[in-house]
Amino acid sequence: MLKTKNKHNDAELVELFNAGQKEKAFNQIVSKYQERLYWHIRKIVISHDDADDALQNTFIKTWKGLENFRSDSQLFTWLYRIATNEGLSLLKSKKRRTLVPLEGDEYDLSETLMSDAYFCGNEAQQKLQEALLKLPEKQRLVFNMKYFEDLKYDEIAEILDTSIGALKASYHHAVKKLENLLSED
């Protein structure tokens, strides 16, 4: 039955992968999640090239780790966790390489935003995006996942391995900070 179906649910895809049809199952997983994960990473790292790197690394790690994946957790939560780690690691390594110690991280990402050939927002979108980049990293991550990606608190808690209470606090602080930042204009 597994072999004849074109679309499988996550559990079936994992089963198919472990049954030996690795490439077929993996390609379906990539096709199913690539866009969601791409936008999740893109909001973390901002530039397309960095997002592409982190996304490819995410799927390569998925290929290597799928054999040991425990089906008691959701595949999509696991993928999101890998993607988040890849995005944050890439950002960290970029910050370490930055040779402008007096400038903040926000400046870095704003610069990245403006120099990215694939940013095509208008002035208003640019201002909103820059305000988001001024949030502390964790608050920005939580805000993006809750507000833009419509993830539930319990899903975010599983992905980020943190408590729902801490997430609600982070989201609340992020909204308050955005209020202040955007009312300044």
Partner: peptide, 25 residues
């Protein structure tokens, strides 16, 4: 504020290279 931010919800401010998602797998 949240209404204002809705303008970013569709990711229209970010572009990707042509056929990026088709070629990615």
């Amino acid at each position: 504020i949240l209404k204002k931010l809705e303008r970013l919800k569709d990711n229209a401010q970010f572009a990707v290279p042509e056929n990026y998602f088709e070629k990615l797998p």
